[in-house]
Nucleic acid binder design. Structure first.
Lengths: 192, 192
DNA sequence: GCAGTTGCCTAAAGGTATTAGGCAAGCGGG
DNA sequence: CCCGCTTGCCTAATACCTTTAGGCAACTGC
């Protein structure tokens, strides 16, 4: 019988495609085996287990996303950079909903530390160099942007903003405006 | 044999507790049956299927959250109300991580429309009455707050902000400051 | 206390995850 | 060229979760 030519890389790539087609939650070792027309057990020489497969898809998505962000940020600063980075996340989510969900998967700390997640953090800080923020405000801002991007993309993908006006596109543009304004004019701590 | 006294309500409540203990993803019909010391098939007279169970847990969580928010908002306005609402979400997530994850579960449109989600939307708009926002900016702001709360709570629960300084508590307070400032001084659309 | 309902059980089938061990495809050396 | 070794994919088996069908016993109301 001819061999299927499985490798971890091909499996992960196919798993990512599967995720985009049927949703990250439906990515299963069995479904992937079907896709390669191979028995389920065969995958276990290339991937440790189901969790390992999903983790690798998440890592792939984080890499792709970081690559796109790096490309988009090159030569931009200030609001331009902010908008570029924001659009990278949103566009990726719309083009690759499954991968995008994977990128939001919870990783254990060591895996996360070795992932492209750290590039994301560095790039976010790079964007913030266009604004005048000292520590710890810069970290607060990193967390604000992370939360907002994560939340907006999740809600939009879940259909939260469809079927109501104004459409999501307009909100998105206006919210980037708003965040830009906030970062430019970052408030001092309130005195309680 | 004595009967276990199953009802949909008891199952959903126990399912919510189970979610808080082991995570929403691990909430399974089998695990719930074990918890009641009952055979798995017995649950199927009370709950349509696994998805139905999870949906009901989500609806419970949304109700609880809306009740808390309503209580917290009574008699408050402006930044006070904003902070109160924000803290409801965050505190709920910390006290009830499983329910909180359930509340973020994707619901189909009809279910969502019949859920306490609409109360949340109304209350968010009520909070925004303390700020001077016309439509469509009010809707943009609703979406901003929704995204931010959702994102922040997800990331914090996933451990995204632990093991780094400043601690999440401080960031949280400062970001509420920041959002308050942004809402008070909402920028006009940028002219592209 | 009896009849009817209904709640929980047994049985069974199908899907996913995972491990152990086997056979042959394809590569490298003679 | 072909022989042997590696290793890739397979069969087999176990375990768990989901879901449906049908049965018997425990409550409920008369």
């Amino acid at each position: 019988m001819a061999r299927a030519g499985l490798t971890p890389e091909r499996l992960v790539r196919a798993g990512a495609e599967l995720a985009d087609e049927v949703g990250f939650d439906e990515v299963t070792v069995s479904a992937l085996a079907r896709r390669f027309d191979v028995k389920v057990a065969s995958l276990y020489s290339h991937v440790r287990n189901s969790h390992d497969l999903r983790t690798r898809i998440a890592l792939l998505a984080l890499e792709e996303l970081a690559d796109r962000a790096a490309a988009a940020l090159a030569g931009r600063a200030g609001k331009d950079a902010l908008a570029a980075m924001a659009n990278v996340y949103r566009d990726y989510a719309r083009e690759h909903p499954g991968r995008s969900a994977a990128a939001r998967m919870r990783l254990d700390p060591e895996t996360a530390a070795a992932s492209a997640g750290v590039r994301h953090a560095r790039m976010t800080r790079a964007v913030l160099r266009g604004y005048d923020l000292e520590e710890p405000d810069q970290t607060h801002a990193v967390r604000l942007l992370g939360s907002f991007f994560h939340g907006y993309v999740s809600l939009e993908l879940a259909g939260g903003f469809s079927h109501s006006l104004p459409d999501s596109e307009e909100t998105w543009i206006r919210l980037i405006d708003a965040l830009d304004a906030l970062l430019r004019d970052w408030p001092a701590p309130s005195t309680p």
